[in-house]
């Protein structure tokens, strides 16, 4: 028996979200007294054996050409085959873009119940019960997986990364498959921290009064190595690109720190940011609803507060 963790990569690099997924999977393995193994699909430039530090003792590396691009159908085939071979009772992945596509498919293939969007370790004292986010972070559900094999996808930044001093045994494998999806282009927003992967997000709303004022937010973001985001009206007015819009109808994020500047905190906006660990609000209106869900706040004018904050952070870093 074992726990299998899907290690996700893009353009030859392991995604950060997978470090957390491995740490989480390794903790489950410890809890149920079995080893934790990784499954890595496609070629990477990173040191694979070194991933042992996240708690996986063995990594199945599938190197067929077809896995260099993501295709949920063929990825599922490889993960399920290896899970079966390794006698996996739990399959773990990150609840990121790839995980959301793969976890439900693997669940069907293995006839295994799935909990997507898990936020903590399962309770295995009586059955197998996983806590997950529901209602866009406004509540939790405890879901019992009633099948012999279980599939879990973990929300980013909800568990954390643990490391040990170890390296993994790497087993190179081939799993034949034919992709039906052809990737014809990748359009990346260059030079920025990807929003859904970011530890810190600096986000602006209509209080910023226009796209031309975003320089002070970008400076703050750069100082904190943060991604930038915005409220929906900001994207709708083309002050900022659409892919930055967070909320119920936009991107859902779960960073360690979300800094909301000139955003009122409408319920539809909060639906995208509720899962953030710490929330800082800068708004000139003390009655803005965002303060009700904030950990730290400044009631003040963003145009004065934000540059001062950036300077103060730079001062402390120096």
């Amino acid at each position: 028996m074992s726990v299998i963790i899907f290690i996700d990569q893009t353009e030859g690099h392991i995604k950060k979200a997978s470090f957390e997924a491995m740490s989480y999977g390794a903790a489950i393995a410890k809890q149920i007294n079995v080893p934790a193994y990784g499954v890595l699909l496609g070629n990477v430039n990173d040191d694979i054996a070194a991933l042992g530090k996240y708690g996986v003792s063995k990594i199945y590396h599938v190197t067929d050409e077809v896995y260099n691009h993501f295709d949920a159908q063929v990825y599922t085939k490889a993960i399920a085959e290896i899970a079966t071979e390794a006698g996996a009772t739990v399959v773990v992945c990150s609840h990121n873009q790839s995980g959301k596509a793969v976890a439900p498919r693997v669940s069907v293939k293995l006839k295994a119940g799935v909990v997507t969007g898990a936020i903590s370790l399962p309770d295995t004292s009586n059955g197998f019960v996983v806590k997950k986010n529901v209602f866009s972070g406004k509540a939790f559900a405890f879901v019992s997986i009633d099948t012999a094999v279980k599939v879990i996808s973990l929300i980013q930044n909800s568990y954390g990364v643990n490391t040990v001093e170890a390296s993994a045994e790497v087993i190179t494998k081939s799993v034949a498959a034919t992709a039906k999806i052809k990737v014809t282009a990748v359009n990346k927003v260059s030079g920025e921290v990807p929003l859904t992967e970011a530890d810190i997000v600096v986000s602006g709303g209509r209080g910023m009064k226009g796209g031309e004022h975003w320089g002070i937010l970008e400076d703050l973001a750069k100082t904190l190595h943060a991604a930038t985001a915005c409220s929906r009206p900001v994207a709708d007015s083309d002050w900022r690109p659409h892919h930055e819009h967070v909320g119920q109808t936009g991107i859902q994020v779960s960073p360690n720190l979300y800094i909301a500047i000139g955003i009122s905190g409408a319920i539809q906006h909060l639906a995208g940011v509720n899962r953030s660990k710490t929330i800082v609000v800068i708004n000139k209106d003390a009655e803005a609803p965002f303060f009700k869900v904030a950990d730290y706040g400044i009631v003040g004018d963003a145009f004065e507060v934000v540059p001062k904050l950036t300077e103060a952070i730079k001062g402390l870093k120096a």
Partner: peptide, 23 residues
Amino acid sequence: DALTTIVKYELPPARQSVKLISP
């Protein structure tokens, strides 16, 4: 057959009230 069952729900603990810092 269903493969999962919802055992119970929980609301998040009330957030501590915001720590305000002077501008």
